[in-house]
């Protein structure tokens, strides 16, 4: 297979509408059902998000997509090919950022990329060229001979991203790409991913950062206990499940509670905190602040996080 000298994912191996087609995807570990017959399709050239709390089945799902875990049932096509049969051909065209740091600590920054390129059968010369381009892309060229053990967490993540691009993938799979990073590093990653999106790469992303999902995803599913709760684009989901605005009231009084209930406003009562969902442009907020609470009351735009918490609940997942 010939790889054109494109830096980023501009190659088009596949021109169908959906790069990933999962149908009744099932994964069980003994009696435990990790992924419970879910179906979804990742559109070519788009970013598709899989959101869910810890243990929801996100990682298990993407592991099946990149051929790491065998499926327990269902059908899964990537690039229109069957993952069980054509796994090797598929894997040639996928880039994966795994959740756990799997950089090779025995090697330098540059060697990490070059050796990885060899796993994709890239000739040494081409591997070197591509590695240098990617180090440029992630702003790590000045550390190319450093052992990876000397890099900061943010640098390591960027290097993992670069490594996943070494084969000029058509599909980039990111499993919680910014978990544990500081805001600067997170924005760096997002900027780089934005650039890649501009070049038309397809991304399959798992995350539990709603800001990340809102920013990157064209379409997403929220899953929990191995089942899909909703699917849609971030804006639609917010409008559909939460509305335009959210008023949060700290230490609500009994009077306020009866007021909210009397007007049948959609809300969540957390005891010490009351959350009201509304399309209100300010009248309700003014009324509440005037009559019921002088302070500790804020109105803000509804976010994907509101949708997420509303659908998956607020209990801790451990």
């Amino acid at each position: 297979m010939v790889h054109p000298q494109a830096v980023l994912g501009t190659r088009t191996l596949f021109s169908g509408q959906y790069i990933v087609e999962a149908e009744n995807l099932l994964k069980t570990f003994g009696d435990f059902v990790a992924v419970n017959r879910i179906s979804f399709q990742v559109a070519t050239g788009k970013c598709y998000g899989i959101l869910g709390p810890n243990g929801a089945g996100k990682t298990t799902t993407v592991r099946m997509v990149y051929g790491f875990s065998p499926m327990s049932g269902g059908r899964l096509k990537v690039f229109g090919l069957d993952i069980s049969r054509d796994w090797r051909q598929i894997k040639f065209h996928i880039g994966v950022c795994q959740q756990e740091n799997s950089l090779d600590p025995d090697l330098t920054v540059l060697q990490n990329l070059e050796i990885f390129a060899r796993y994709f059968d890239m000739p040494k010369k081409e591997a070197r060229k591509k590695a240098m381009e990617l180090l440029d892309f992630i702003a790590l060229k000045h550390r190319l001979n450093a052992p990876v053990t000397e890099l900061s967490g943010g640098m390591m993540r960027r290097l993992v991203l670069a490594r996943s691009l070494i084969n000029t993938p058509d599909l980039l799979i990111l499993d919680e790409p910014t978990t544990g990073l500081d805001p600067q590093s997170r924005h760096q990653i997002w900027d780089r991913l934005g650039e890649l999106q501009g070049k038309g790469i397809t991304i399959l992303l798992t995350t539990h950062y709603m800001e990340e999902a809102s920013r990157l995803c064209d379409r997403l599913i929220i899953i929990d206990h191995g089942l899909i709760l909703v699917e849609g684009n971030p804006g639609e989901l917010i409008r559909q499940y939460v509305g335009g605005n959210v008023i949060e009231i700290a230490r609500p009084t009994g009077e306020l509670r009866s007021f909210i209930q009397a007007r049948q406003l959609p809300h969540e009562d957390l005891g010490h905190r009351l959350i009201v969902y509304c399309e209100d442009r300010g009248e309700l907020y003014q009324r509440i602040t005037r009559d019921f609470c002088k302070e500790g009351c804020v109105m803000r735009l509804a976010t994907l996080e509101d949708v997420f918490l509303k659908l998956t609940g607020r209990e801790l997942r451990e």
Binding site: F68, R88, F92, V96, N101, D104, P105
Partner: peptide, 14 residues
């Protein structure tokens, strides 16, 4: 400890 095999298994290697 190094997850080297995990990384390899995300490539065309079996």
């Amino acid at each position: 400890y190094q997850k080297t095999f995990d990384a390899m298994l995300a490539t065309p290697l079996s």
